[in-house]
Design a protein around this nucleic acid. Structure first.
Length: 309
DNA sequence: ACCCAGGACTGAT
DNA sequence: ATCAGTCATGGG
């Protein structure tokens, strides 16, 4: 079926990349719909529009329909003063090592709705599986706007989807969470646009009213969609690296204790510290050389509201 | 077969 | 408020 989209003008942009590393940024577990071409260029979506991006020297180049300089800058966080972020970091040899591993890693500002769906889908899933779920949702419920190009379905569309059809997208027990979340958004029970206007603590509370959204998923949405780089999501990897490097592998240290430590230790831009650490321990085989894998204490089910981050 | 995955929800204390 | 069990599915 051919596209019913009006022909949008193709735009070709070149902007200062400020040292962005697309490979690190787009494979660091914050986005799940970009694909790497054989030539190293990346195909994906910015604000719901398909595009192709790559780096050329110090330039970031982007091609796609109706792209704007402002949209690309915002999406890739090129307006974030990384100098200031780095200057705010504590003197910490572990964080230094994580930074040095991928200094061009950047935190994206993605669409809240798709980010919400991705991280509802993420619980107890590996990153490659989240990518597959995103792909399946697009093909099952999105609009085809080109060859092998499917938009991400909006909340109203998913709110009409039979749960059996959602389960076919490998969502498992997350299917009912996603379905309920879609109805909450489509009905206006939770307004994702309003979340953007709230202070981070209140924004997190609002997001946690959504089915399937606990503290960790809410922090991922705040960090990867709303640009709240004070958010500090603690998943099994971050919990593992914090426990090993800062708590001597003590199994009694709770996730909440680590959150308090992280809020104080990593400073106002701790979301970036978190992302450097996460990417480093997952991708660098030499990270945590002496680190035996300690079993991770399960996080408490309580929805913590007392602290920020 | 076994363990793990960018966890959240439910029900029992 | 905290804790253990449960929830599906695919990778290694």
């Amino acid at each position: 079926m051919k596209s019913l989209e009006p022909e949008l003008p193709q735009v070709s942009l070149s902007l200062l990349g400020h040292g962005i590393d697309l490979d690190a940024t787009l494979t660091s577990g914050q986005t799940f719909s970009w694909k790497r071409n054989a030539d190293g260029r990346w195909r994906g979506w910015i604000d719901g529009r398909p595009c192709l991006v790559w780096t050329q020297g110090d330039a970031l180049r982007a091609v796609g329909p109706s792209l704007t300089h402002a949209a690309v800058t915002r999406y890739f966080g090129l307006d974030v003063p990384m100098r200031e972020v780095f200057a705010s970091f504590p003197s910490d040899p572990w964080l230094d090592r994580a930074r040095a591993f991928a200094p061009g890693l950047r935190i994206l500002r993605q669409e809240p709705w798709e980010t919400l769906c991705n991280f509802i889908s993420s619980s107890l899933k590996q990153i490659v599986q989240i990518q597959q779920i995103n792909h399946d949702l697009r093909h099952a419920f999105g609009r085809q706007i080109g060859e092998e190009l499917y938009s991400f379905p909006d909340a109203a569309r998913l709110a009409l989807a039979p749960e059996s059809q959602l389960r076919a997208c490998r969502l498992g027990f997350r299917a009912k969470h996603l379905f309920t979340a879609a109805r909450q958004i489509a009905s206006g029970e939770v307004l994702l646009e309003r979340v953007a206007t709230l202070p981070t603590v209140e924004a997190r509370e609002e997001l946690m009213r959504i089915r399937g959204v606990g503290a960790k998923v809410a922090n991922c949405i705040l960090l990867f969609a709303y640009g709240r780089i004070e958010a500090f999501p603690i998943d099994v990897w971050v919990e593992r690296v914090l426990r090993r490097l800062y708590f001597n592998d003590r199994p009694s240290v709770t996730t909440e204790r680590m959150r308090i430590f992280a809020d104080r230790h990593f400073g106002p831009y701790r979301g970036y510290a978190q992302q450097f650490l996460f990417h480093w321990i997952r991708k660098d085989p030499k990270a945590l050389p002496e680190g035996r894998k300690v079993p991770v204490k399960k996080a408490s089910a309580a929805r913590v509201r007392a602290t920020s981050g």
